[in-house]
Lab assay of single mutants.
Amino acid sequence: MDVFMKGLSKAKEGVVAAAEKTKQGVAEAAGKTKEGVLYVGSKTKEGVVHGVATVAEKTKEQVTNVGGAVVTGVTAVAQKTVEGAGSIAAATGFVKKDQLGKNEEGAPQEGILEDMPVDPDNEAYEMPSEEGYQDYEPEA
C-alpha cells in the first residue's frame, strides 16, 4: 500500500510541476504579447503594419512553449490582441483601416495563427491545408 501511495504522490508532483510550467509559459506569452502591443503603439504610420505582424510573430513563438489545451486559448487571445492593436492603430490615425491585415508588401496577414497546427491532446499534428499553395516548377 505504501508503494501505491508513494507512486500516487510522485504522479501528483509531476502534474503540479507540469501545471506550473504551463502557467509560466502562458505568463511569458502574455508578456511578449504586451511587449508587441507597446511596440505597435510606438510606431509611426509606416511601421504600424509591420508592428502588428511582430506582435503576432512574438506571440506565436511563445505559444510553442505552452502545451496542451492552453495553446488553443493563448492563440485565440493573441489573435484578438493583434486585431485590437490594429483597431487602436486605425482609431489613433497611425494607419488607414484599409491597410490593416496586410503586410508591407500588401499581402493579407489573416491566418497567421489560424494555420498553425495545434492539437490540445498532444496526440497528432496535421499540416495546414494546401489550398493556398501553388506547385513550383523550376525553369529549365
Rank of each mutant, 00 (worst) to 15 (best):
E13C: 07
Y39N: 03
V40L: 14
Y133N: 09
E110D: 10
P128L: 11
A140C: 12
G101N: 02
S42Q: 10
G93Y: 02
A69W: 12
E126V: 10
A17K: 12
E126P: 10
G86N: 12
Y133R: 02
E105F: 12
N103F: 06
T75S: 09
V66Y: 14
K21G: 00
Y136G: 06
E139A: 08
V16G: 03
D121N: 08
Q24I: 13
G106V: 06
M127W: 05
Y133W: 09
F94D: 03
V3L: 06
G47V: 11
E130N: 11
V70S: 01
A30Q: 01
N65Q: 08
T59F: 14
V77E: 02
A30D: 00
A107K: 12
A124P: 07
G132N: 14
A78P: 02
T59L: 05
V70L: 14
Y39C: 03
P128I: 11
T72N: 15
T64N: 10
K96V: 13
A76Q: 08
Q99Y: 12
A56L: 13
A56E: 01
K34L: 06
E114H: 07
A107F: 06
A56Q: 06
E126A: 15
D2N: 15
A90L: 14
T81N: 02
G73Q: 11
E123I: 09
K96H: 08
K96M: 14
K10S: 05
E139Y: 13
K97W: 15
T59E: 00
M1C: 00
A107R: 09
D119W: 04
M116C: 08
G84F: 13
K6Y: 04
Y39R: 08
E137G: 07
A91R: 05
V48T: 02
A29E: 00
E57G: 03
N103I: 04
G14R: 13
I88L: 09
L8M: 06
A124E: 13
V3M: 06
A29Q: 02
Y125P: 10
A27H: 08
I88S: 02
A56C: 12
A85K: 02
K45L: 14
N103Q: 09
P117K: 07
T54E: 02
P108R: 09
V71Y: 08
G73P: 02
E114P: 11
P128W: 08
L38V: 08
